[in-house]
Amino acid sequence: MSLPNVDETIDVIKKLVEIPSPSGNTNEVITFVEKLLTDMNVETKRNRKGGLIATIHGENTSKHRMLTAHVDTLGAMVKEIKPSGRLKLDLIGGFKYNAIEGEYCQIETSTGNIFSGTILMHQTSVHVYKDAGKAERNQSNMEVRIDEKVSSAEEVRELGIEVGDFVSLDPRVQVLDNGFIKSRHLDDKASVGILLELIKSVKNNNISLPNTTHFLISNNEEIGYGGNSNITQETVEYLAVDMGAMGDGQSTDEYTASICVKDASGPYHYALRKNLVKLAEDNGIGYKLDIYPYYGSDASAAIRAGNDIIHGLIGPGIDSSHAYERTHKDSIDETTKLLWHYLQAEMVE
């Protein structure tokens, strides 16, 4: 019996982050995941929101588990085409303009054409603007410089660019020899990669799971409602696999699995949390308990939607969330091992 290989998991994560998928425009990455699962002979179906549900039937078909990770990311839309030919943005998801200043991006038109650009302050040139360093990084001051010969709104529209077109950020993914992986959108494509490799190992090892288990690859988590539906009546436990946030006062690091005890939605299910801790300790898995004060997950969205479930949240530790993120293969590996044992463990009673 072999656990997922962490290097293979990182290879999948790298492929995932390189596929643009801001919330609202996730069909390409969902199709990529769907093909991987179909090649594993895993039963899949799409929900009407565009998410993907994979199912592995277990010994107990009356009590189900559901695990979810989200493949949608932060991004933006074209809010306005300025007279100068630059674009004003409207952000998708909860990130800040200062985190994307100077970032390469792409604009996808409604007909599928792709244009390159850079997100910049209007007052970027220090040779022209006295307040270049002090001006506020906000929607009014930041814009996209399109890499085309355009200097008016009319010329931009002639390219086919229009209000509502999606803007995606260059992930700039790097996998280092010392085990670090840095990229945008590790939230939450690191967790999606983990789940995909877990499913592959379950199939390759012909493991019989104790309970029928669903894997929801959600596509609207960054805007609050990716995993709040398509939960079967038989589902007892619902575990979100999402990043652990790092910063002052936090326990989470880049080398262990993070188990969330509470976030902005309130405490997670106490018995499930204790079961996850026991699984980690019994199997020598590195973990940290943590509270995320400005965080919500697909599991908390499912609770808010009125589902009668036991909910939990774990994931790899991610530094600089909603910016240029980083984690380490150790955190990917420890999270994978905890989920491996969780899938084969008895449910909370």
Results as ranks from 00 to 15, higher is better:
residue 28 E to T: 08
residue 30 I to H: 04
residue 31 T to C: 09
residue 31 T to N: 14
residue 32 F to A: 04
residue 33 V to P: 09
residue 37 L to Q: 12
residue 39 D to G: 06
residue 40 M to C: 08
residue 42 V to C: 06
residue 44 T to P: 08
residue 46 R to V: 12
residue 46 R to F: 08
residue 47 N to I: 11
residue 48 R to C: 03
residue 51 G to V: 11
residue 51 G to M: 07
residue 58 G to C: 04
residue 60 N to M: 04
residue 61 T to W: 03
residue 62 S to V: 13
residue 62 S to K: 14
residue 64 H to D: 06
residue 65 R to F: 01
residue 67 L to K: 09
residue 67 L to T: 09
residue 68 T to P: 02
residue 68 T to N: 11
residue 70 H to S: 05
residue 71 V to L: 14
residue 72 D to P: 00
residue 72 D to V: 01
residue 73 T to G: 02
residue 73 T to I: 08
residue 74 L to H: 07
residue 75 G to T: 07
residue 78 V to R: 02
residue 79 K to N: 12
residue 79 K to P: 01
residue 79 K to G: 03
residue 87 L to C: 11
residue 88 K to V: 04
residue 88 K to E: 02
residue 89 L to S: 03
residue 90 D to L: 14
residue 92 I to K: 07
residue 94 G to Q: 06
residue 94 G to N: 12
residue 95 F to S: 11
residue 95 F to D: 06
residue 95 F to H: 15
residue 98 N to S: 14
residue 98 N to K: 15
residue 99 A to F: 05
residue 99 A to Q: 10
residue 100 I to A: 12
residue 100 I to M: 13
residue 100 I to F: 08
residue 101 E to C: 11
residue 101 E to N: 14
residue 101 E to H: 14
residue 101 E to V: 15
residue 102 G to D: 13
residue 103 E to I: 09
residue 104 Y to S: 13
residue 106 Q to F: 10
residue 108 E to N: 05
residue 108 E to Q: 11
residue 108 E to D: 01
residue 109 T to W: 06
residue 111 T to A: 03
residue 112 G to L: 00
residue 115 F to D: 08
residue 117 G to N: 04
residue 117 G to F: 05
residue 118 T to N: 11
residue 118 T to D: 04
residue 118 T to Y: 02
residue 121 M to S: 10
residue 124 T to L: 09
residue 124 T to C: 00
residue 125 S to L: 03
residue 127 H to F: 06
residue 128 V to C: 02
residue 128 V to N: 05
residue 130 K to M: 09
residue 131 D to G: 07
residue 132 A to I: 02
residue 132 A to L: 01
residue 133 G to C: 02
